[in-house]
Write a protein that binds this DNA or RNA. Structure first.
Lengths: 153, 153
DNA sequence: TATTGTTATACTCTATAACTATA
DNA sequence: TATAGTTATAGAGTATAACAATA
């Protein structure tokens, strides 16, 4: 007789995580954005003025991919490249006013997403979950705000 | 002044989930398997004899993709197709003895993976987390054992 | 010569849809 | 005509690496 391994927490985390990412992608699509784009906007807001190279390293993606991401957001005036007069190779990234406005819309979307995903839990349980997840993320060496799966779409 | 939205639980779940999936992929690569392959082996074990069509629907993937998956596992004698004499269009899927043996190796790998991912938590906390995650997965209508991100690799 | 940013190429993976066989 | 399974094609998305500008 065969024993079927029961789903452990690691599987549940991967399963719920993929579900959460897909639902989030749907929500930000209403803003005509993809999850990696929202991640980049957020990263720029956290520390304006970083170079594309620095951001690519921070986000864990090849520079060539970041260029395409920046292109799309710059075309829509959400982000701008500013040349550094001291070292003209560097392009410092900054949010535009429209970019700031977009970021707060993203914040509202993320909040609604959070609320829908955790609908099954009451406030105390949500706080407990958040605390446990933070401990795991910290222990696993995950960079705050950086999604390892900022690939595709 | 700009307000940076703090990472909520939905983001943490997506982040940790992607991390967990990547670490799991590394572990099963040692068995020369991909995560979708392990998912298929498990699904066959749970209910042997299902048709490829039924399994494709269950796992949420196109039949053409399942065929390639089955091909790879059948070539390695982990899985076998059995023709149904009553309806020769149907290919019932069953694990071979080697497939059963592989599944228990997968179980051990998954257990070690679980343990490493939850290293930051004690037993009581792990139980609490598992209970909360199960409630969320259930509330969100996720099919037990089926990873929505059984794509790529 | 080294580094930033950019562009081009080649590859991997996937879904769509055509096709074959059985019913 | 409809369904199970299979194969072929075409498209999306990526990383690698070549390239241009600046240091």
């Amino acid at each position: 007789m065969t024993t079927i391994p029961r789903a452990g927490s690691a599987f549940l985390l991967a399963q719920i995580g993929a579900h959460a990412a897909a639902r989030y992608a749907e929500r930000v699509a209403a803003l005509d954005l993809t999850p990696p784009q929202t991640g980049l906007l957020r990263a720029v807001a956290v520390e304006p003025g970083r170079s594309q190279q620095a951001l690519a390293t921070h986000l864990g993606m090849p520079a060539s991919r970041l260029v395409a991401l920046v292109d799309g957001l710059a075309d829509r005036d959400l982000l701008e490249r500013r040349r550094n007069p001291d070292d003209r190779r560097l392009h410092a990234l900054h949010l535009t006013d429209a970019g700031e406005a977009m970021l707060s819309r993203i914040g509202r979307v993320a909040h609604a997403h959070d609320d829908a995903l955790l609908a099954a839990l009451d406030d105390t349980e949500r706080a407990t979950l958040h605390r446990l997840l933070t401990r795991i993320a910290d222990d696993q060496g995950l960079t705050p705000g950086v999604h390892p799966g900022y690939r595709q779409v």
